[in-house]
Design a protein around this nucleic acid. Sequence first.
DNA 1: GTTCTTGCAAACCTTTTGCAAGCAC
DNA 2: GTGCTTGCAAAAGGTTTGCAAGAAC
Lengths: 179, 179
Amino acid sequence: MLSGKMSDQYKEELKKRGFRLTSQREIIIRTLIENSGKHCSVNDLRELAQAEDPTIGIATIYRTVNLLSRLGLLNLVNMEEGFYRFELPGQKMHFHLYCRICGKVIHMEDETDKEATVKKWVEEEAFHFLPQTLEIAAVCDECHRNFPENNIAGPPCSGFGHGRMGGHGRGQGGRGRWR
Amino acid sequence: MLSGKMSDQYKEELKKRGFRLTSQREIIIRTLIENSGKHCSVNDLRELAQAEDPTIGIATIYRTVNLLSRLGLLNLVNMEEGFYRFELPGQKMHFHLYCRICGKVIHMEDETDKEATVKKWVEEEAFHFLPQTLEIAAVCDECHRNFPENNIAGPPCSGFGHGRMGGHGRGQGGRGRWR
DNA sequence: GTTCTTGCAAACCTTTTGCAAGCAC
DNA sequence: GTGCTTGCAAAAGGTTTGCAAGAAC
């Protein structure tokens, strides 16, 4: 089946770069591929992977996802939930539009046209295009109508709107600041 | 000066919705406005605000930023660093293009044209447009040339590429999952 | 046999929260 | 005076890491 092919591709990529093929990595990759429509989080991945091998540890999930990410084999999707979700690159782009006030998310129309536009933008900068999910913030009509009259946040406020921010372990690398 | 006007606007917005004007909130708002080109993080904000009033606590920064965010007065920018940065809405959009492999970030050209395109997309969905920074992932030419031959990540890999993921306190609300 | 990987548990770090004191109105 | 806000310190919770045991090659 399709996912067999896909996962072979991933495994070859790993091998080619000198990484070992462990059963854990196989399971995680397969899980990622079989659930590629779902934007799995680390926790989703853990549950799915542990259904196949309950001994897989969370650290292995993180390390594998990190590895695939660094190899360019996995995209991060930020839903402003306080953690990332994943998607395989090399598929169609998706466009999410979410309301800054109430948090509602919709899938935008005409993704193919929009993808072509983004691709053009990227290539104009001499970068190589990578299909991904783009999240655009806006205000839905309902919230816009109710807006300045209503007190939309009963104090004490928290949660950065609907999203949350991120903590993480010891930093290193990173993409530099500003500019 | 300009920032005086801006901050009056913010203060009025707070008052109008029944929130109190404290000296801490004033400082944080002023700092945000005076550094609006810089995409400050909570830590940047803390340093800047504490230069004016060393007793301001980090919790107040978070609570204020949360409040402004819920009121639609502040946008979150995710640089995949493991925490958010902030920007004031109501300004020009910015477009960042970053390399998925090496993490390099560039500012894209023709932001005005691109902004018009995004505005059109948003309004086609009957949402109200909000200027913001959009981050687009891609692969830079250099990394693309070096790509499959090089082992770009010496094991053990970590850091989700160059970015990091997020942890957070107790959740609540949220934007739902998938779909 | 050597070197990379894993699992566990502890460490990290950002963000949130409980609570008593303080301040805005 | 009432009740929102603040600061502190502790808790929360996602992610990373040190290390010894195990697996891939």
